[in-house]
């Protein structure tokens, strides 16, 4: 699974993207965020307040219950501030 990070998430994690092998029981956005959060203190820190993190699956906004799979492009980022 490809995961992209933007804005302060990218800065705090020190990377803009990674390829990860997630456990078979990680099948939703919510489960993915929980799994990511236990990968280390930096992940725990950026994910501790889920209300300020948005998730996109294959370039569309996703809800916690939406499915994720190994072929998906996932992105984590703060609420957008364009315009």
């Amino acid at each position: 699974m490809k995961i992209l990070y933007f804005a302060w998430l990218r800065e705090k994690l020190g990377m803009s993207e990674e390829d990860v092998d997630v456990p078979a029981d990680v099948t939703t956005v919510e489960a993915l965020l929980q799994w990511l959060a236990q990968r280390g203190p930096q992940f725990e820190a950026v994910l501790k307040d889920p209300t300020i993190v948005r998730v996109a699956v294959n370039q569309d906004y996703a809800h916690p219950e939406d499915p994720v799979s190994a072929d998906d492009e996932i992105a984590l980022f703060p609420p957008v501030t364009g315009g």
Partner: peptide, 26 residues
């Protein structure tokens, strides 16, 4: 278009200035 763009288009603003750098909050 402007209202929807501001809440849906994936852009993030970072301001740099006398107070240092900071990400603009939504």
């Amino acid at each position: 278009l402007m209202d929807w763009l501001k809440t849906k288009a994936p852009f993030w603003k970072r301001e740099d200035g006398t107070a240092g750098g900071q990400w603009v909050e939504a």
